[in-house]
Design a protein around this nucleic acid. Structure first.
Lengths: 203, 203, 203, 203
DNA sequence: TATGAATGAGTATTCATTCAT
DNA sequence: CATGAATGAATACTCATTCAT
């Protein structure tokens, strides 16, 4: 095999391993993930895993991190040319919707989230806006709103985190409590937005 | 040993087992809990566990449930004769404080919360107020506030859940992100309350 | 409790234990029998077993022995005033029938038969006729038949054992091979009798 | 180690496991067989067993099946050019002899025979002659004998099974009752043959 | 007589990992 | 690069039995 083909094959195998690990976590939970199962599902022998990942924990870390990234990517982007409050509404809505569309996935990854990953997703700290695109987008909407006189001037960093936490709180509970009807869900989302927006509205 | 002493000893052992299980979950996570380890930490043989708990799952369930209960008990009660908005402020504050006081505990129990316990702690559904005393207390504060003309009339059930989720969201993030400074924390809590209360205020 | 009542109770308990052990062996096989299960099924604590039986093996022995006895008792008795060859036919038939009526029971006890019980059921040796009523009955039928000129004179002890073994062989196979149709079974029994009787017939 | 040596070693280990399992069953009964004991007796770690056998049951199955095969192979073949009745006599005799030569083995395997193996050794059913070479050989002897006018025409299938069951019955009892003297045994075998052959004889 | 408590010894099975090949 | 073989360490759980009460 040529160098190039070899390398390509190598990268391919690496991602097949990762995807298989993700699949197992999603389908059967993190405790069901075993090196042998991953290997067997890609029709290789177990030790091959160790050629691409230091050990089981390393593989798990990578799988969860990547899985989390995928999920966040699945949040529908906000359409352009919206008013700031509409931006907030839409982004809140999209986030909840995407949670509902991949509930199983969220459940697995959000619940299984391990401490090593927390830095990655930290939001409250000063650098949160750098690490979380969602937070950054909320901040930008708030700033536009304040500039446009829609929202009261305020500490945007703090306020964005309030918004984010409320969103996260509902989001998390919606994942955990799967027996909520669609109507109830919509009403909860609506009411969240109403309270939050009125809480910062200029009028 | 007399009957009575015997029985006392028995109950003691039962709770020593439970506490040990909790300790292990807190310190090393739920995957570190093994029947043997529990037994060895109380200097008994492994099978003794099965005299007090049907099996490992049973023990885990009891440990988590009890742990959760402990945590909730640690939330400082609201003093009487407060105005409704102060009630909300204080209860929010107390909740966050207690989260900070047992941060490790929360982390373990909140994260490890298993599906069997979700019913126990469900909040969003119609019966949430029956199951969650916190939710019930929020509802009552809201009602008083509306009656008193402090808050705008609204769907109290929904609004209480908004409040609860926001609280839970912040609470959860505070647990996860332990490197937040006290000042940042206080500011976040303040801002949460300001936004949320302004969101329902009558003025 | 009076001495007498006490003793009666004691004997009762002893047999309840025995019957329970038999039931378990019949229903779930000998490997399913455990001291605790026996005790729990009679609503007593495990150690009580040891007051009536030396240990688990002792209990098993007694249970199997008694079970075997019961089964043999269930063989329908031969009606009086039959000709010797009819006696043999009928007893053979009854034996097979009873095997079929309690197939599960036979299977368990016959298969589980342990070496300690072999003396009890020995047939081939010189004292077989004393220990096995079936063998004794075959011998008596043979003797009558020879006296009546129906059967050729012969070593009755040996011939009875031949008859018994053939019977046992078919019986055992019928127990093991449960998918034999009723017709096939009847034909096999018939043919056995025909060959065996012709083998000793005087004509 | 070369590929070839490796593979040879592997096969060797596989059969060492099997033989050890057989030995344990023979010596101490099937209940004494444990994965750990097998492993320890071949000086390997326990999990190695699972590399060669799916689980304990699989190992047991293989051991018994193989043991049974060995025993049957040890039955001396019938010499050629015998008259049909001599064939029956000789085969009956050989069978009994081989039972006597490996009495312990028979005892274990015949008694421990499990239901999964019964299909393998079924005799009474229509396909018995296909599955049991012994039965097939009896049938062939009977047919020759009838053709030669030695035996009365009859249902050969049924009659062969009668013969087989009688043989099995004696065989089984001889295994169980080990205190029979050689003379008694010979007499029993003789008498069996006399009765059975006279039962089908043409004269 | 009867038992609750306790345990040592044992069970089958799984797993991550190593290493020679 | 890839693997078959092998294993040490664990796992949850069961059981017969003892003994103080």
């Amino acid at each position: 095999m040529s160098r190039v083909r070899q390398q390509r094959h190598s990268e391919e195998l690496r991602s097949r391993i990762l995807e298989t690990a993700q699949k197992i976590i999603l389908e059967d939970g993190i405790n069901a993930l075993s090196v042998r199962r991953v290997a067997s599902e890609i029709d290789y022998a177990a030790p091959v895993i160790y050629q691409y990942y230091r050990n089981k924990n390393h593989l798990i870390s990578c799988a969860i991190q990547e899985g989390y990234r995928k999920i966040l990517e699945s949040v529908e982007p906000i359409p352009p040319n919206l008013s700031p409050d509409e931006e907030l509404r839409i982004s809140f809505k999209h986030f909840m919707d995407s949670a509902m569309q991949v509930p199983k996935a969220y459940k697995a990854f959000v619940l299984q989230i391990s401490s090593e990953l927390l830095a990655e997703t930290s939001v409250l700290g000063k650098d949160g806006s750098k690490k979380s695109p969602t937070l950054a987008s909320i901040i930008s909407s708030l700033e536009s709103g304040i500039d446009a006189g829609l929202f009261l001037p305020c500490n945007v960093q703090l306020t964005a985190r309030v918004y984010w936490c409320a969103m996260f709180g509902l989001f998390f509970r919606l994942i955990l409590e799967t027996d909520i009807s669609a109507e109830e869900r919509e009403a909860l989302i609506q009411r969240h937005l109403d309270v939050l927006l009125r809480g910062i509205s200029a009028h």
